[in-house]
């Protein structure tokens, strides 16, 4: 299964992922139509920045997710893809999930006292934020492939001094 991974060192803080996320969660699915929709579409990835570095954060879909345990209303559940989703008809706006989520990715629906969270773009093969990122800070790939590549990089680093 593919996972959505972050390469924080590549993030430019351009917030293209946020725009693309809002467009994906709009009716018209185009930037030009989305900005005029009522209710306004909301993005579910948030770029957090301290002026030096930026971090694009969206739901990590934790195994043994604390939010799932904390949701007493039964609104949060996991779908076949392994993605944690919220059934907003059941959400009672208790904010328990927000309190227990280690990443702060639960936000409020602009129009109602309910949560909004990343659904990993059920209609898309590759999540919108990943496609939108111009610098490759967001990737969607198999974990094994990612680990393999990381190990290759370690190998390269260790080889550099002797190669010289």
């Amino acid at each position: 299964m593919k996972e959505l991974l972050i390469r924080a060192e590549r993030c430019l803080g351009c917030r293209s992922c946020e725009l693309a996320c809002a467009v994906e969660h709009s009716t018209g699915k185009s930037l030009l139509s989305a900005i005029n929709e009522k209710p306004q579409p909301q993005y579910r990835v948030h770029v957090t920045s301290d002026g030096n570095s930026s971090l694009p954060l969206q739901c990590r879909n934790c195994e043994d997710a604390p939010c799932l345990t904390a949701c007493l209303a039964g609104a949060l559940h996991r779908d076949a893809r392994g993605v944690v989703l919220c059934n907003s008809d059941l959400c009672i706006g208790c904010w328990m999930c927000l309190m227990v989520c280690p990443f702060g990715i639960i936000s409020q629906n602009h129009n109602e006292r309910r949560i909004v969270k990343c659904d990993r773009c059920p209609d898309r093969e590759i999540p919108a934020c990943v496609t939108a990122c111009p610098s490759g800070a967001l990737v969607y790939r198999e974990i094994n492939q990612e680990s393999r590549e990381k190990r290759q990089q370690v190998l390269k680093k260790l080889q550099t001094p002797s190669a010289k």
């Binding site: 293209s16 930037l31 900005i35 496609t131 939108a132």
Partner: peptide, 8 residues
């Protein structure tokens, strides 16, 4: 992808 802020 091109920048949405620039586009708007």
């Amino acid at each position: 992808p091109q920048c949405g802020f620039g586009e708007l």
